[in-house]
Nucleic acid binder design. Sequence first.
DNA 1: AATGTGTGTGAGATCGATCTCACACAGTCT
DNA 2: AGACTGTGTGAGATCGATCTCACACACATT
Lengths: 340, 340
Amino acid sequence: MGRKPATLKDVAALANVSRATAARALNNYGYVGDETAQKVQAAAEKLGYRGNRLAQALRNGQLPIVGCILGDIQNPFFARIAHDIEVVARQSGYNLVIGSSEEELDQEMSLLASLQALSIRGFIVAPTSADKNVHLQGLITDNIPLVLIDRVAKGIECDSVVVDNEGGAHKAVRYLIGMGHRRIGLLQDDMRIFTSRERMSGYRAALAAGNISLDERLVAVSQSTVEHAVDATIRLFSQKTPPTALFTVDSLMTQGALLAFRSMGISIPHHVSLIGFDDFNLATFTDPQITVVSQPVSEIGRAAAQLLFDRLSGKSHPLRKIRFETKLIIRGSVSHCSAA
Amino acid sequence: MGRKPATLKDVAALANVSRATAARALNNYGYVGDETAQKVQAAAEKLGYRGNRLAQALRNGQLPIVGCILGDIQNPFFARIAHDIEVVARQSGYNLVIGSSEEELDQEMSLLASLQALSIRGFIVAPTSADKNVHLQGLITDNIPLVLIDRVAKGIECDSVVVDNEGGAHKAVRYLIGMGHRRIGLLQDDMRIFTSRERMSGYRAALAAGNISLDERLVAVSQSTVEHAVDATIRLFSQKTPPTALFTVDSLMTQGALLAFRSMGISIPHHVSLIGFDDFNLATFTDPQITVVSQPVSEIGRAAAQLLFDRLSGKSHPLRKIRFETKLIIRGSVSHCSAA
DNA sequence: AATGTGTGTGAGATCGATCTCACACAGTCT
DNA sequence: AGACTGTGTGAGATCGATCTCACACACATT
């Protein structure tokens, strides 16, 4: 059939009024006679009229869509955040466009540009790079609401929601040191990424506090996927004198480490102790259960969305930078270091 | 500063030509003098001109966005699919709007309506209900490209990508029967959902083929979250004569079952055998590793996106209904039934 | 009677890109 | 010379909703 959706003109025609009057009746503003208003309502009803958001957006310069650029939707951490943002967005009558930067700066930039070309005003971004951020700076100077999530970027003054990465990492490593470990490995993500830097610095600080000097050979850089983490773990533990404990900076990498240990016949916690940053569903299914630094994942997306919609609704708050605390959840993957 | 993005008019003014000529130069169509074209290009460059997609969309009736309505992005199955769709979309210059129906028909319908109001033409939907689908029928009659994914809907004639749910479930249950099990539990999702029905029917068929009559008390209905599945499993196994084996219809529910068994002190595979539909990352981390029916997850999203973009590009294919096979991956969570 | 205020309505401009149409000029053909 | 084709350009309409403005009428105030 291909019947076109009804336009305001159609409604106006059916109600025998002008477009202007129809618009007034439907959006109730200005003066409209009661009787006229009823006629218009009836006509709209009958035609199943739904305003064309595109046309509305063209006039007022803004689409009821928020853009969300995350590292990777497949990471349960980001999936949860995306879900929570969508819930809040829906309540405000917004839809959510999701883009995955795949931790590539180029992709992040082109994604952002294409969303801006859509007149989307309102972004939640987990920036790939802590330094290179002209594109984000552009949003700020254009006065487009932006909330940074999970990561902040140097020199970008805007609302943000992060967790205490450094503190979390510090707690984990301090705990390992307390259990007698001195050769503590770090499986980390690309150093361009803010969280990776912060967790690294927590690791360093804890080592320093324990009078342990940093051994570069115990630090492996991977990407945040199970597969990459498996390889990196195997490299790390194929050395002559491997670490006695490992700290992994995100849950996918923790899972990769688990897989690697299994394939290498390394048993937790007897041969190696393990702590991962970010809790995950199956951390309690494994034997032993995995000790982790947990973040309040369920709060992050909601908080970020709240900040964004507060901005979008025009309230002019001062900048708000939310930082959540992390919690060390002790389970069974860490034991006292036997090999001194 | 708030500098507005440059418009075609600005470019035209800078190049000293009319808007029409500028448009011709930038989109190269019609006649344009070489020299004029260069001037326009230069002006566009200088102003950093990017066409306003909204205005373009208003004219040609279609936004470069595809809508994607899935059950739940937090389910790794859907997260993977969303990711793959986004990759294909990006290649075609499209962005992806993701909506989560949360398995509520109302939400699915209102989400769809709001995306249609945005002039989005092109949807990938995992319909909540196998029966109620006027909204989908509406897309069809309006000739809006639609691809159903993971699930089909009665009477909706369009491209689709599903897996052989019935066959997969049949394989799993037949295997359990072959191992001597006769009291085989089913932990399933809401019966409105297509996959749930099909997997149920595979379960029935396999029982029938094994001359086992269906015992309603062995069938638990849950929702597709870890939490709900835990409860349902506990109920199922708190009966006087609980099942000796369990078949779960998706990976979150499999994880829920695992958690429930752990909390009840039920050991796999000694006390109970387990097979889950849909493989998951940690299925090989647990001890024992979990036997599953795997679907080619990495193919599904890509295939669906391909079908959609073929339609969007105007080629008029006949309907294409893709059905992928499933594979029974035997690991260690099933043992011979000791209790006859 | 003149002026003012509150109410109700429509014509037309606007947002930005695109497309149709008309027009103008060069060169070619009868 | 007159008619025609090919090339190049601009004015204006269009998509749909909204908003400004002008106008019109009713009633109240001086």
